[in-house]
């Protein structure tokens, strides 16, 4: 509707000058220009450049050599790649536990008692701390000589287990550390959602005899749908982005068993094992494709909402 300039009000000066006549069509482009230029240069173009680099063998310094699909071919036979992929799937699945866990804590805290706001903030606390610090905190938590985790299982006569040094437990151990801040995030989403739940519907449900789980499932959860959707999006993105925790807690070890694609890519391209930019880019392309499924889904949903709204 704003495509055509609004008719000028009676009595206003007739438009003079080219700028005055065209400013409504030009203004959006002018306002977009600086932000869009930055974003194109640093985000959009690099995506395509990465695709391009993945067809080359390049150490980041010398000449890049075109190798076609050889990097992808090598990936196909790379065990470390499959370990990373497998761990990515484990991350994706287990990380989703943050959503019900967050809902559970939100329900627990959704009361109006003394100092409850402070409690809510303190429960949210882990999300505000940097993942690097979360990683350090949990590496000490898991420490086999003095970590609280082993003190705890010691009470039951178990352990000690070197969680981060054992290839059977390492990925799950790191995911547990990641779930701590992620659950806090989901909790705050649900607390906000619960605040907006329609009290009349709850009352109506109560009159119909709905209680506890049935009330939660049939009356409350449908109203929390927007919160659940956001929780899903941020949790999946978070799971696929996992890098900081792995890098600080285990550096991919033991024997590369805790690698995920995001970490393996970095290792291949920039660590002491060598500067294989092309091979790294190929891993990044695969990770990007996986992420693209979720991004497309998210955009599609946004597009639908836009048309309705």
């Amino acid at each position: 509707m704003a495509d055509a300039a609004l008719p000028l009000a009676q009595g206003a000066q007739p438009p003079r000058g080219w700028w005055k006549r065209n400013q409504q069509t030009l203004a959006p482009w002018l306002f977009l220009a600086p932000g869009a230029a930055f974003f194109l240069l640093y985000v959009i173009f690099p995506i395509f450049q990465s695709f391009q680099v993945s067809f080359y063998e390049w150490d980041g310094l010398g000449e890049a050599e075109y190798v076609g699909l050889r990097n992808y071919d090598e990936l196909w036979y790379d065990d470390a790649f499959y370990t990373s992929l497998k761990n990515n799937v484990i991350w994706l699945v287990l990380y989703l536990a943050a959503i019900p866990a967050g809902l559970f804590i939100a329900l627990f805290l959704n009361q109006k008692v003394f100092a409850i706001r402070l409690y809510k903030s303190l429960f949210f606390f882990p999300f505000v701390i940097s993942q690097v610090v979360v990683a350090l905190v949990f590496s000490w938590f898991y420490d086999p000589t003095f970590g609280l985790f082993n003190e705890f299982i010691g009470l039951f006569g178990l352990g000690p287990i070197a969680v981060l040094g054992d290839e059977r437990y390492v990925t799950v151990g790191i995911i547990m550390a990641g779930l701590w801040p992620q659950t806090a995030y989901c909790m705050i989403l649900y607390l906000t959602g619960l605040n907006a739940v329609d009290p009349e519907q709850i009352e109506a449900g109560r009159l119909d005899g709905a209680k506890g789980w049935r009330m939660l499932w049939y009356v409350v959860l449908p109203q929390l749908k927007p919160a659940t959707f956001i929780a899903f999006v941020v949790t999946i993105i978070g799971a696929l982005r996992s890098f900081d925790l792995i890098s600080v807690m285990t550096n991919g070890g033991p024997f590369g068993e805790s690698r995920v694609l995001a970490f393996y890519m970095f290792e291949v391209a920039l660590s002491e094992y060598g500067f294989r930019m092309g091979y790294g880019a190929a891993i990044a392309v695969i990770l990007f494709m996986i992420m693209m499924i979720y991004i497309a889904f998210f955009l599609w949903k946004m597009y639908r909402d836009e048309r309705e709204g």
Partner: peptide
Amino acid sequence: FLFVAGNFVPFQILMVPV
């Protein structure tokens, strides 16, 4: 949509070019 999609991409796809 380009801004939104770009915001979700994995960092690794940007790493080498950036």
